[in-house]
Nucleic acid binder design. Structure first.
Lengths: 350, 350
DNA sequence: CGTGTTTGCCAATACGTATTAGCTAATACG
DNA sequence: CGTATTAGCTAATACGTATTGGCAAACACG
């Protein structure tokens, strides 16, 4: 097969067909929509472009405008549906604004190397979520517009969910169900969102006069296998009646470990996660969790970034954090022996 | 903040510093690695580039070479971990070869619109998986190099898993466990991979003298909720002893529906999925499934595509399909009443 | 009718790189 | 020593678009 693809049509082709200059074509097709072009001429150009099937060459446009119309999204783990949702949210609004998004995670790499690669691709900006942007060396982000997710910063604008409230909600839910022997499983990390979830949780516990022995604070990577191992270790030593997991992956791993060990969830042990990924309602029993608006986070981050790229100044002052909410499902119930005070117990699943 | 980012360093800057012409810099830094440049000169150029922190502008390079060094990956649903793995696999090899990948799914769009957007971004080629490439209008892919996954084609090269074997394996496993009242849940689709899974399954059943009543062949979107609804409907009318689901999402939905209905899995009902996504081993009971090498598929597809883009001719003749394998877990067991013949029952989960 | 102003278009140039043709100096060969 | 060849480099150009300064024509106004 010859496959001698016909040379793509350029502004010059359109110009020739419309009987005008290339500059005029460019004026009509790209620039300020109301450049000074006679209506009749404009019409002819549009017509010619249409007929020829003209499609602007983004590379050329980017070259002259000094922009690539692409943005990167850096997350720790695309396999985690939460981050994937963030990416998806960003992708939607980016697409509308004519930007492509290059998602990538740092599983097989480091944030620095990944940012390096993104800069080599001339991305105009990046959205950073969950990789501790604050700790990045200063020059890894130079020449780059940045928006951070769930991490307040004076250097860059950002969007955030109310992670503190997430932790407090989880604690409040458990305490309301009468739990006082409460454990926590989360990552050892300097990622702000995780730390806030944790802080909110312990704050609220303290407010209720609850403190927990240090062996009930388990550190583990925020993954299913991490949660599995942590819960297994936890069960080997002692028996809390409830546990808050810093995200749903951990929670699902923890749930699995508990069931495997023959623990009756939720009657002997309540488990509550955070994120509300789709799978949370698929596992059995369904996972109680705190819903975080991941797609909305991604969408807003993208909007913020693109606004910057389009030249508008954007303040780095954080806006109101996005609200989170408790999703009662089947892995939490009244503490064994105790009676729930404010809470009604779990939603039935029949 | 001024943020007057210093103008990025170009080949001209490097040339000035090294005391040579821009052309020489380009020869050293880009072209055939052994262009005719004196070792001493080459050294000076490399040094200057290093000192200035030169980074080639991919847009400019792409403009002159007529390539964007970006490829698209089109899948039906990035939320399905299987497709995400395909993307991940592709991403890794693409990154090594200096290509960016623009992943996207067709949930909120159509394949055509999506391809349109990719072409507007000047991608050099696309990998297409699970969206029925064969049915796409011919011009949606013109000017584009294409590699298809799990879909034999004369127009484009492709890579495939042994979907037929996947279906046969599933059937063989169930039949070996003594099941004869066997159902199937899968999508009504013209996507080749799904059809082959189905065909292999029914082939093997027929080989064992089994046919199934038409109400045991359920059509549903290949999602968790699809599987859930299908299984619910199935249970409302009759009781097979085993069911093969065309992918793991369906299977997990089906499992959920069965458990919700009080069906004992696997003692009353065996369920087997396909793909072996990570979650398959997280749900309880753990899902028996057929493992498909998703990342490897993605990686090979990318290699094939990039080989084409680098100018080598690539035959459209399909290679050997990648092997699949049965992963025995806890959702399949001997048929109630019957005795397994060849199979040993399920792996324990202690 | 002369002058000033606006309109509508275009020529020219820039963006940063790759590539080719060609020039000079050095080397090989008789 | 004269010529052919090669090595090593550079000037020039192209890629496809955006943008600016300016020119000619049309118009406004006295």
């Amino acid at each position: 097969m010859p496959n001698s693809s016909p040379r793509p049509v350029t502004t010059h082709d359109v110009a020739r067909r419309a009987g005008v200059s290339q500059a005029t074509v460019s004026l009509v097709l790209s620039g300020n929509p109301r450049a000074r072009v006679a209506p009749a001429t404009r019409e002819r150009v549009l017509e010619a472009a249409e007929e020829l099937g003209y499609r602007p060459n983004i590379l050329a446009r980017g070259l002259v405008r000094g922009k690539s119309y692409a943005i990167g999204v850096v997350v720790p783990d695309l396999t985690n549906p939460f981050y994937l949702d963030v990416v998806t949210g960003a992708q939607r609004v980016a697409a509308e604004a004519g930007y492509a998004v290059l998602p990538g995670d740092t599983r097989e790499s480091t944030p620095i190397r990944h940012l390096e690669a993104l800069r080599a691709r001339q991305v105009d900006g990046v959205i950073i979520d969950g990789v501790g942007a604050a700790a990045l060396p200063h020059d890894a982000l130079s020449e780059l517009k940045v928006v951070v997710v769930d991490e307040p910063s004076e250097r860059w604008p950002g969007v955030a969910s109310d992670a503190l409230a997430a932790g407090r909600l989880a604690a409040g839910h458990l305490v309301g169900l009468g739990h006082r022997r409460v454990a926590f499983i989360g990552p050892a990390t300097d990622v702000h969102g995780f730390r806030m979830r944790e802080r909110g949780f312990f704050q609220a516990l303290r407010d209720s006069g609850i403190s927990l022995p240090h062996e009930w604070l388990r550190r583990t990577p925020p993954t299913v296998s991490g949660g599995l191992a942590a819960m297994k270790a936890l069960l080997a030593t002692s028996r809390p009646t409830a546990v808050f997991c810093a995200n749903d992956l951990i929670a699902m791993g923890a749930l699995k470990a508990a069931l495997k060990a023959g623990v009756d969830v939720p009657r002997e042990l309540s488990i509550i996660g955070c994120d509300d990924v789709e799978m949370a309602s698929v596992v059995t029993p369904e996972l109680t969790t705190i819903a975080i608006p991941a797609r909305e986070l991604g969408a807003r981050a993208a909007r913020l970034l693109i606004r910057q790229l389009d030249g508008q100044e954007v303040s780095a002052r954080p806006g109101k954090p996005l609200p989170v909410r408790l999703v009662r499902r089947a892995t939490t119930a009244a503490a064994p022996g105790g009676t729930g005070e404010r809470e009604q117990g779990t939603a039935g699943n029949g």
